[in-house]
């Protein structure tokens, strides 16, 4: 089962794309960058990377990614959002009228720690991963409120920073900036589970 190959896309409109591609490959997945909506076809999972959420959101709207990624999600295909990707996935963004994808049942705050001088790294225990993960927070968002179906996987100073809702996974830090790819392995596991389930069904 673990040897099953999965193909995971990284949304490549803006942000830390190559780092995610590298981490996914090290986690045993086939990784491709996605710049056009038709490149979503044939993918088993998708990563929405860190970057500037306003830029990524605008370009997603412009090129028809909002509808297409919602369809991708409706089919149960796993999506992993890091930092800006977390914001893009959220149903509600503090101080902003419109969400981007609005898929995950949570309310998030952008730049919740402050400006760049408040950015930091720390060892973060994550549920489902044995040893703490080195977590890099850069102008990071926080999850302020969650719906019933959302499970919190990690907190930092009692604030929610990693969570999962079924096939959706988010972290407010950047697992792609270190050589520790266990969170990518966790996500690749979700994608494998989906793929084997889909094959059976």
């Amino acid at each position: 089962m673990t040897n099953q190959t999965v193909k995971i896309g990284v949304l490549a409109l803006q942000g830390a794309v190559s780092e995610h591609l590298r981490s996914l490959e090290r986690a045993g997945a086939e990784a491709v960058s996605v710049k056009r909506t038709e490149q979503l076809d044939g993918l088993d999972g998708l990563v929405i990377p860190g970057g500037e959420s306003t830029t990524i959101g605008k370009l997603m709207r412009k090129y028809g990614f909002i509808e297409r990624v919602r369809e991708f999600s409706e089919a149960g295909r796993p999506i992993f959002g890091t930092c800006a990707g977390l914001i893009v996935l959220a149903k509600e963004i503090e101080g902003q009228e419109e969400p981007h994808l609005g898929l995950m049942d949570m309310k998030v705050a952008r730049n919740a720690f402050g400006r760049q001088r408040e950015s930091f790294e720390t060892d973060l225990p994550i549920k489902g991963i044995e040893q703490p993960v080195r977590a890099v927070f850069i102008r990071a968002p926080l999850i302020r409120e969650i719906g019933e179906g959302v499970e919190v996987l990690a907190t930092y100073n009692e604030e929610m920073v990693t969570a999962r809702e079924g096939h959706l996974l988010v972290s407010s830090f950047h697992p792609e900036l270190t050589d520790d790819y266990r969170l990518h392995e966790y996500f690749a596991g979700m994608v494998r589970e989906f793929k084997s389930g889909a094959a059976k069904g």
């Binding site: 409109l13 803006q14 190559s18 760049q116 930091f120």
Partner: peptide
């Protein structure tokens, strides 16, 4: 918790990639 590490500082620039 460590702020201002080279990973945090370089990482901030990584997030700007592909941008203007």
């Amino acid at each position: 918790m460590e702020a201002g590490t080279s990973r945090v500082k370089r990482g901030m620039a990584e997030m700007q990639k592909g941008g203007v």
